[in-house]
Design a protein around this nucleic acid. Sequence first.
DNA 1: AGGAATTTGTGCGTATGTATC
DNA 2: AGATACATACGCACAAATTCC
Lengths: 234, 234
Amino acid sequence: MTQTQGSLPIYQQITELLIRDIAAGRLIDGERLPPERDMADEMGIAVGTLRKALAELQNRGMLERVQGSGNYIRAVSDPKSLYAMFRLELIAGGGLPTAEVLSVDRVVKDPGLPGFGLSPEGHRIRRLRRLSGQITAVEEIWLDGSYAETIAREDLSESLYLYYRTRLGLRIVRAEDQVGLGAVPDWAPAAFTLEAGTPVPLITRISWAQDGARAETSWTWFDHRVARYVARLK
Amino acid sequence: MTQTQGSLPIYQQITELLIRDIAAGRLIDGERLPPERDMADEMGIAVGTLRKALAELQNRGMLERVQGSGNYIRAVSDPKSLYAMFRLELIAGGGLPTAEVLSVDRVVKDPGLPGFGLSPEGHRIRRLRRLSGQITAVEEIWLDGSYAETIAREDLSESLYLYYRTRLGLRIVRAEDQVGLGAVPDWAPAAFTLEAGTPVPLITRISWAQDGARAETSWTWFDHRVARYVARLK
DNA sequence: AGGAATTTGTGCGTATGTATC
DNA sequence: AGATACATACGCACAAATTCC
């Protein structure tokens, strides 16, 4: 984890990563984070840098820090904060973000994906994301086939992040947001091709690492028109 | 400046010191602070410690920090923040704190004062403090006579702190709050003697240093009944 | 206009204190 | 009482933005 030209400072990247994990349900309320030194070591950053990110989360009320005990996730109740998490603005009222698993399949990797992992196959997880009950995004996650033989749909119901860590020994170490048409992969469904004057979809790319190896594995689209694509999926 | 047993962390002491300076008008809106390294050196603390205090002020909206330029005081408009500064609660609505100079005299030091400075005389500055137009405190400041021959009333009108620094080369380096009867000096006016069940006055003691010498020089009383004393002064 | 100097921002590493388990 | 984990504080190096000459 380094700060390259034009990118956000490391501590802000960490902050956004954790916020995204909270909003997405990969970090659940009450969950205790690993010790700061462990987290920092795994992320390859200094403890002070991590602490700066954690302090920011505490300011936002998403994290409770207890000396001598640990750092505990505190889910946010204020809907406005959730909107800020997603960088999405909805006109409708409050409501917690939800993630409904649409499908979990072990399939041959789509050739349009960037290369990742060792297996020619991968687990394709499709999730429907709602905010205030309204469909805001569909999320497609690819997990390399070598990590697990099979993945049960029930395993993912509660906390995807927790599943990664406890069952697979994976820990998400970095996440990037990219906005723009160029970042949309070729295999994006036609419904997502942009028209002039329409909002640019927000694309979230999440990467994880184990034993130093890294792979891009997940994209998330946020678009008001995503419902059309979902209708076809179901 | 060290952290002793039971006292607040250094960075919190700095934060409160600066807040008090802002609230009291010793630091005025738009004023630029000295460079961080200079401030830290004068205070005898590390830059990082100072920066933590400045960051807290920025969070509260009292300070604007501009990379490559400097740190600028931003007066607070939110009345609630002002009340927090004074640790005083008023029932009435908002309003900026003001400091009206009642008198500036060079007189023989009151024997009830703790020893400070070299001169047998001192400048006695009395200021009337208002919050939301309501009289909330009277402030009596003693400045050792050796620092200046005479002090003009006009000099103090704008920013006492600025006057100290630019004209006298003094810089406030520490401030303590003490609550309790024992800390009230003997020369406190009769109106301030406590009665059972009445609120305890808040006493602010400010010290400054030059060339390593220190002197206690200022007390401030906050009490609803201060108006009676003021009436006699005028 | 442009380069040097100034000033804050970021990141790292370390040591020690303090609360919790 | 010992181990664990967060809190505080220090100092250094370099980056980035601003300001000054």
